[in-house]
Design a protein around this nucleic acid. Structure first.
Lengths: 225, 225
DNA sequence: CGCCGAATCTTACGGCGTAAGAAACGAAAC
DNA sequence: GTTTCGTTTCTTACGCCGTAAGATTCGGCG
């Protein structure tokens, strides 16, 4: 954010672990993960690459850091004890998706790394609280929350993967799919042509709804219409 | 497979695109993605790094290739028109999981790249066929199949991520989780202590079951017990 | 002032992906 | 058998990467 162009002779950059992570996150989102090198990040901050090692022990820690920074942005599940847990979970999933989509550069990392940072733990704890308060057994609460978050992460990761940074349509785009031989893949071609199941947000909503409905059913909850 | 140690003077290596991809896949699974460099792969095959560029235009294509090679191993959904689509999908999900788990090195790639290779298209087409034959509308078939595959991929990716190659327990392991302060995260700590929701296979089965049940419910299928 | 710890820079090493071209081979053409 | 030619393999080199080691410069405190 603050303009990092060319410090005067013997004037410090005034970095923080936080400011370094923020710049890294911003750079990854803007130019993609591949463009996030220590030297490039240094240049972005008006500093040599090695300087960054005063704020971060190695690059992997930097990556962990930006994941955590992005995760910290996610809003916790609402602890409204009056609301149905299904509504709470649906709202949480929706908000998790929009937050993750705001950081396309980090999504490959989120989908790939084990998630046991304080930030994620906080969200998980809150989620479990909501589910337990609704009467679900602990084990099933874990299973439910796990299934929901994994689906959200995978779906958003797939969304950004098929629309890469600064790039024309990828191989998975509907346009590309529509051009394959209907004799080889009739249904896929038809879906691409008619646009069935093409809208990311709607497909996402369907998956979430199915997951929540299914969990409720397996747990013997009364169905609602 | 074939012993690649030290060809005699002026004796060819006899590589194929397939053999190169196979070796790359095997190397990635055995030593992890980070260890898969062109030079290392060349050494594995008894050949200089640049030689590989006769079989693959660049490293990204190599990665795409090993993903496709792994994907080709997945068994297509059974087209048994007598069986319930729910059973077919559950079996497919289960088999997809075991296949993916056989290639831990490739999972980060699968979870990350857009999937529009012939192999995946074949599986998708078959899945859509099954669902359509059961009477689901095309759009919903796409949504259902999408939700299922994404969940499977995300879950298996999470499984291998929390048990990395040749490594002691990662940060997300139950042991590590059990040691955090119960005052900060009481439910997470309790779950870790009692082992609730700890079994990967069972948690997976729950998610799949929930997803399928939920999709059926949303599509107005009669419930079964 | 002198000193010290923190912040920054310099230099350097080994590894990476890969561009460019030389070299060695096998098979077909003569 | 010799020549030719396309395929396969190797050699060399460039610029990038992460980062180890250490010199340097700074602000603040005695």
């Amino acid at each position: 954010m603050t303009d990092r162009r060319k410090r005067g002779r013997g004037e410090r950059a005034g970095l923080t672990r936080q400011s370094v992570l923020d710049a890294a996150l911003e750079l990854a989102d803007r130019k993609g993960l591949r463009a996030l090198s220590m030297r490039a990040l240094g240049a972005e901050l008006g500093v040599e690459a090695m300087t960054l090692y005063h704020y971060v022990p190695h690059k992997d820690a930097l990556l962990d850091g930006i994941v955590e920074r992005a995760v910290d942005e996610i809003a916790l599940p609402a602890a409204d004890t009056n609301a149905d847990w299904r509504d709470a979970m649906r709202a949480y999933a929706e908000s998790l998706r929009t937050t993750l989509l705001r950081h396309p550069g980090v999504l490959p990392l989120v989908a790939t790394r084990p998630a046991a940072t304080p930030g994620t733990l906080r969200a998980v704890e809150r989620g479990l609280t909501v589910l337990r308060a609704a009467g679900l057994p602990l084990g099933r609460s874990v299973d439910t929350l796990n299934a929901l978050s994994l689906f959200v992460i995978a779906h958003t990761a797939a969304e950004v993967a098929s629309a890469p940074v600064n790039e024309a349509g990828a191989a998975g785009s509907p346009q590309a799919l529509a051009q394959l031989d209907p004799r080889d893949f009739p249904l896929v071609a038809e879906a691409a042509r008619t646009g069935a199941g093409t809208d990311d947000a709607e497909r996402f909503r369907f998956g979430i709804q199915a997951l929540i409905t299914g969990c409720a059913a397996l747990l013997g909850e009364p169905s609602r219409d």
